[in-house]
Design a binder for these strands. Structure first.
Length: 485
RNA sequence: GUCCCCAUCGUCUAGCCUGGCCUAGGACACCGGCCUUUCACGCCGGCAACAGGGGUUCAAAUCCCCUUGGGGACGCCA
């Protein structure tokens, strides 16, 4: 029996939650839930300059939107500074780390030099072998210092990544990396290792960009005498140009997709599909189903490219399959955004509103579509599409007569329902020798503004007698003056 | 440049570990067709890949080596 699984998502609040981070969080979350483990949120805000509380709040909000709730945390590293300092000092006492008095300018110069020469830069170890006296003098002079880890000169670090292959790096490739900066703040390596081990993290699931950090951290675990967790480095997400997805590829913030009308269920599933193979014939999976199926063994090694088309397809699938009640709040929001919302949609017309969502959802891929493509269903203020006019507004006497007769017949009815509206239309079409398709097409554009719509009789029933008559009148007027010859 | 990792349709991937069932499967996208009052949905069909070269073997997408290509890391950022 292994230990209880404990994983963490550890973003640094120097920007919004981006797609890559969200997916890392998701894999951690799925893994934790699948194994009855604990999912912890840790905020790595040790870079005071760039971190902010606002940003970490937004990240938490985005995680929750995606349906990921954490069991412990958020733990802020900025509140644990004392711990890291103590560990660093202890390492110095034990001779496993040392004070480095080199100043930044000096180091920058050496790095620059190395770059010019085209040789790989590595800290030269100037302060590694300082004598006791030199150290004392520096200290007495109050020279600022950083603490560096003393990397063994020889040996090979090997680890078996859960996702990748066996990875091995020679110690000679590693430099004496900084643990504690001269301002007293820990670097990533220190705070990460200290926290992971103190929090009892069993599996470190993170982006493949961290692979090269792992050997250093393993060394640190050893120096500290702590258990080394399992590592799972998941492949990166690439933009269309095959480089790591970043701001310049456009929208990378999760919040942007939320605003653009993507459903959290859809977005999470899409994220999971980049780098994970659920091995099932099911096309769409909910979060619970993903949890059921998730296994790190099914995480692939190759980087994935972000494919918006697929996201949209998945989103469309979710929109189609979700009950209108679930879609309602999102549709309300987007209608508000477009100034199409009316209070009665949530009041006396709620059922009618739900019916509308249900009618439309199967052909929409974004929530936004309810307000754009679906404008005519919720507002009387809409125009006819070019395509609609072109295709169905033909000047034709028989068509015109039929339209007028339909208008009359409809107005005689108490209520326009699905059956009656169709019965009347079909008989009028026959009477005037007009193809019912042409008649329906023209009416569709008059009622909805588009050539694309749900079944016309559904639309008629949904809009109701009053609106149908008004729109028909308006349409007939329009046809008289602007119809195509 | 140095080190590390990766390599199947345009894209996401199955198959690779434990060679033969692979004339390489699925999905998105794309293109046809059916259904239909339109579109969408749905259904049917099509296009399309083992990066290249050497081995090993009776047999290689699967194992080994090289080349090429791609990505990542080389900070007192995380």
């Amino acid at each position: 029996m292994g230990k209880k699984v404990r994983v963490r998502f550890a973003p640094s609040p120097t920007g919004y939650l981006h797609i890559g981070g969200a997916r890392t969080a998701l894999f951690n979350y799925l893994f934790a839930r699948r194994n009855g483990g604990v999912f912890i949120l840790r905020i790595e805000d040790t870079d005071v300059e760039r971190s902010s509380k606002e940003l970490s709040d937004v990240i938490i909000e985005d995680l929750k939107w995606l349906g990921m709730d954490f069991d412990e945390g958020p733990i802020y590293q900025s509140e644990r500074l004392e711990i890291y300092r103590n560990v660093a000092e202890k390492l110095v006492e034990e001779g496993k780390a040392y004070r480095c008095f080199c100043n930044k300018e000096e180091l920058e110069r050496k790095r620059e030099e190395a770059r010019k020469k085209g040789v790989p830069y590595k800290y030269d170890g100037t302060c590694r072998n300082l004598t006791e006296d030199e150290i004392k003098r520096n200290l007495r002079e109050n020279k600022p210092y950083a603490i560096r880890f003393k990397v063994p000169q020889e040996g090979i670090i090997r680890f078996k990544d859960v996702v990748q292959k066996k990875i091995e790096v020679k110690c000679s490739e590693l430099e004496d990396f900084v643990l504690l900066r001269s301002d007293g703040y820990p670097t990533y390596h220190l705070s990460c290792v200290v926290d992971d081990s103190e929090m009892g993290i069993t599996h470190v699931i993170r982006g493949a960009d961290h692979i090269s950090n792992t050997p250093k951290q393993i060394l640190l675990y050893r120096a500290l005498g702590r258990d080394i967790p399992k590592f799972a480095h998941i492949p990166l997400i690439l933009g269309p140009d095959r480089t790591r997805l970043s701001k310049r590829h456009g929208a990378t913030a999760v919040s942007k997709y939320r605003e653009d009308g993507f459903l959290p269920e859809a977005f999470a599933y899409f994220l999971a599909l980049m780098g994970w193979s659920p091995r099932t014939n099911k096309k769409i999976l909910t979060m619970d189903e993903m949890i059921e199926l998730f296994d790190l063994k099914d995480v692939v090694k190759t980087n994935a490219m972000f494919d918006l088309k697929k996201l949209e397809w998945i989103n469309g699938k979710f929109i189609s399959s979700l009950p209108p009640e679930r879609l309602l709040p999102d549709v309300v929001n987007v209608l508000k955004k477009y100034n199409l919302f009316r209070e009665e949609f949530l009041g006396e017309k709620r059922d009618w509103f739900l019916k509308g969502i249900d009618l439309l959802k199967i052909r929409y891929r974004r929530i936004e579509d309810f307000a754009t493509l679906g404008r005519a269903y919720f507002s009387d203020d809409f125009s006819y599409s070019e395509e609609g006019i072109e295709k169905y507004f033909k000047k034709d006497d028989a068509l015109m007569d039929a339209l007028v007769e339909i208008l009359n017949e409809y107005s005689l009815l108490d209520e326009l329902d699905l059956e009656m509206s169709e019965k009347i239309l079909r008989s009028v079409a026959e009477k005037y020798g007009v193809k019912s398709g042409d008649l329906i097409g023209a009416i569709r554009v008059m009622l909805t503004g588009h050539v694309v719509a749900p079944g016309i009789f559904d639309v008629i029933e949904f809009l109701g007698k009053d609106r149908v008559l008004k729109r028909l009148q308006r349409g007939i007027q329009f046809l008289k003056s602007y119809g195509k010859e």
